[in-house]
Deep mutational scan, measured.
Amino acid sequence: EPLWIRPDAPSRCTWQLGRPASESPHHHTAPAKSPKILPDILKKIGDTPMVRINKIGKKFGLKCELLAKCEFFNAGGSVKDRISLRMIEDAERDGTLKPGDTIIEPTSGNTGIGLALAAAVRGYRCIIVMPEKMSSEKVDVLRALGAEIVRTPTNARFDSPESHVGVAWRLKNEIPNSHILDQYRNASNPLAHYDTTADEILQQCDGKLDMLVASVGTGGTITGIARKLKEKCPGCRIIGVDPEGSILAEPEELNQTEQTTYEVEGIGYDFIPTVLDRTVVDKWFKSNDEEAFTFARMLIAQEGLLCGGSAGSTVAVAVKAAQELQEGQRCVVILPDSVRNYMTKFLSDRWMLQKGFLKEEDLTEKKPWWWHLRVQELGLSAPLTVLPTITCGHTIEILREKGFDQAPVVDEAGVILGMVTLGNMLSSLLAGKVQPSDQVGKVIYKQFKQIRLTDTLGRLSHILEMDHFALVVHEQIQYHSTGKSSQRQMVFGVVTAIDLLNFVAAQERDQK
């Protein structure tokens, strides 16, 4: 057995438009009618409502009807409940999964919650491996369901041993009777949507819809739904939504950006999952974080739909894509998950301010006199920076000697690579993860907040409520011999709460 199987392995699926269902090699399930009293909570997966979006479509000038398939009504709160249950049931049916076995899954959280929910009911041990950027709410729900959680670096490539995929496979090879159901490759993922989600949409719309818009992560949702719609409703256009920084969209030119990270969760990847059939997507749109969270908040405030950030991405694209539809036509959007997962993220004004998705003037509360002053007023001194090749031991000596707790790590040209902190280095040394002679590049981390000289002290204040420091950066445009230009970030300084307090105190003292 291989040590790991690539999540982007070539698909062996034989589905073709027009091929009889009787030739399918898979076990198919028909939607079942729910009894009045459910035998367990797993029976509350599927049969989610279709809700008309009344205000947002009109606000953006849509002539067509805009409908939302509300997947956050599933038992675990997301569309991923469907595939989690289906993968477990299919693994039980073919004898792969037996009582007492362990389920391991690399996930952005929602599939993990679905699997942990099913594992709690069915009696399996469950280990979820997820990147650090995923919300604390997801972690809390997983723990409450009895799952064990392993976190991995957000910026690790999918084929790196440190990625959530790599760590999951390492655990599988170490733990007896453990299984990775593997949402990236498992046919049960798109089949769950082909058999149930798509049929529900067709039934709820009486077979009449002209466009379907869905955000894409593993691709199982859009693949399964689109294949069924292509068979039953061939005139329906399928629109895929991919965040900026991901590479799922086609044509490839759409993916060209210097951005590699994004805040919206559960969609987009740096590889093409095996289950994603991009041939059934008629057109791709890219979405960005700001519009995703703005539209998610709009869905909550104006439509009462308590959905997550990827739902915002989907609707932001839908109001663009559906401009081509006329009166009497219908566009369906998939709202994948609930706001429950993001209470401390985009639902929080403070978080939105820190990330730059909300401006101070958007909030009406009274601010102190210094709130709208610029960061450049602080008069920061030149920063202490270190090269990635310097040793951890030497870096600790320098920081202690100069009285700093942290320093930016830059390359020879001064471009920011990340940050090192005294606390992080000492804990890594004590844990045996690094040696004093190791290069400081081994303990770089990139989960820090950046701020510009033109940003306000109010925004800085919000950042420092949650973080010990902020890195002050400025952009530099560099022209190359080819005539092309590129933008790079340079370090201007490091600012802490002490710097802000000293500035405010000094100004008030001078005024007296």
Rank of each mutant, 00 (worst) to 15 (best):
G379R: 10
T456F: 15
T482P: 13
T274M: 07
Q487K: 15
A431N: 11
L305M: 11
Q354N: 10
E303H: 06
H462I: 13
S338Y: 02
S428M: 05
T421P: 14
A382G: 15
V504A: 13
G308V: 00
V491A: 14
V473G: 12
W351Q: 01
V275I: 09
K355Q: 12
S485M: 12
E252I: 06
M298G: 09
S481C: 15
L464R: 04
L299R: 04
K402A: 06
V319T: 11
L471S: 07
Q439W: 13
D499T: 05
E244P: 08
F448A: 01
Y445I: 15
R350S: 12
I247A: 09
V317S: 02
P336Y: 05
F503W: 10
V472G: 12
P336F: 01
I451P: 15
V473I: 03
T260K: 10
G240K: 05
V275F: 07
R452V: 10
G304P: 00
A413H: 02
F404K: 02
T496H: 06
Q507R: 15
L380D: 09
E361Y: 11
L422Y: 04
D405V: 03
L353H: 03
Y262I: 01
L325K: 02
A296M: 04
Q354D: 10
R278G: 07
Q447W: 12
Q476R: 05
K512A: 12
Q354A: 10
D282F: 15
R297Y: 00
E327S: 04
E250R: 12
L457H: 00
F346Q: 03
L248H: 06
I300Q: 04
G458F: 08
K359W: 09
E475L: 14
P251N: 05
M352Y: 04
T482S: 15
E360V: 12
R488P: 09
L347A: 07
Q478E: 08
I390R: 03
I451W: 04
H394W: 10
E327C: 12
H480R: 12
Q302M: 15
I444R: 15
E401H: 15
I451M: 13
T456S: 09
R340E: 06
R278V: 01
V386A: 12
V495M: 14
L457N: 00
R330A: 08
V339G: 09
G268R: 00
V443C: 14
T391K: 04
Q323M: 13
L254H: 15
